[in-house]
Design a protein around this nucleic acid. Structure first.
Lengths: 146, 146
DNA sequence: TAGATACTCTACTAATTAGGTAGAATTACT
DNA sequence: AGTAATTCTACCTAATTAGTAGAGTATCTA
């Protein structure tokens, strides 16, 4: 380690969430242009285009082409969790492949999963992260602070 | 996302923890050879050498060169947390740079941290992960299941 | 129906990181 | 002296990230 910030959310995922929050604030009030989201959120427009397309293909967004077009949220902000979006862009919510729920893979160096204490403890750790990410929704970001 | 496992612990970090657990089981009972740890944990020996050296330089291990040498744990297994080792090899325990405790960095696209709801919510998420990683120690891995 | 606007799709690229390998130097015991 | 083990530096390859570029398609307005 020299001095960097590994293992964080990718920018794709972060930008996706920011766009969803913006679109969530406009839920059931019409479309937003990619360009407007890009400007207000400081996201490179061509990069955002790809991300919005991914979100559309995954069913979160609808779109209209041409003049007066744009994107809109198809699901309620309450139904979209951070866990869903994270899994879509960044993959497993887990620190070891063998404790992932949606993207399970055996560890290459593991000889017995049943007795592996790495697996036991990291399952606990990843479980906590999953719980919080599952209960945090786009709606959570829209709430005013108390 | 095609189908990969991002954002997990690096192998460096995983191997470091496995080595610490092995050395922890031998705490205050003498040295272990790099070669023996590499064999029993299925870790490439030359790669493990670097990792053990990092752990030594960080103060977790002591070593003896030459015939009958090897590595031993300098701290109690109870005092070494997963959070410490993760930070040493993989950096920040946080999903956004702006919510990191030990490796804080401003997000480039952020205009006002005070009102940023991404920061507010991801701080909650990362806080949970940190808490669990801080209370999980090398000793936790050594305990038998109940 | 021409033109403007905005999404759609595919391909490419540069920088960084992960996960190692290689080999020489040093230390210490027998 | 020889052997066993750590120490240290340099290097390598493949994959991934964070974009950019540009052509194509759909849709509205004048």
């Amino acid at each position: 380690m020299v001095l960097h910030l590994f293992s964080m959310m990718s920018k794709r995922c972060k930008y996706a969430l920011k766009a969803l929050i913006k679109l969530g604030a406009n839920y059931e009030k019409g479309n937003l242009f990619t360009a407007d989201i890009a400007n207000s959120e400081n996201i490179p427009k061509k990069f955002l285009e790809q991300i919005l397309l991914d979100l559309k293909n995954a069913g979160y967004l609808g779109s209209k082409s041409g003049y007066g077009g744009g994107y809109y949220l198809r699901k309620s902000p309450k139904e979209i969790t951070v866990a869903d979006i994270y899994r879509l862009f960044d993959g497993a919510i887990a620190l070891l492949p063998c404790v992932a729920v949606q993207f399970y893979e055996k560890c290459e160096d593991c000889t017995d999963e049943g007795t592996c204490t790495m697996r036991r403890e990291f399952n606990k750790i990843s479980e906590q992260t999953r719980l919080v990410m599952q209960k945090t929704t786009i709606q959570s970001f829209l709430k005013k602070p108390k």
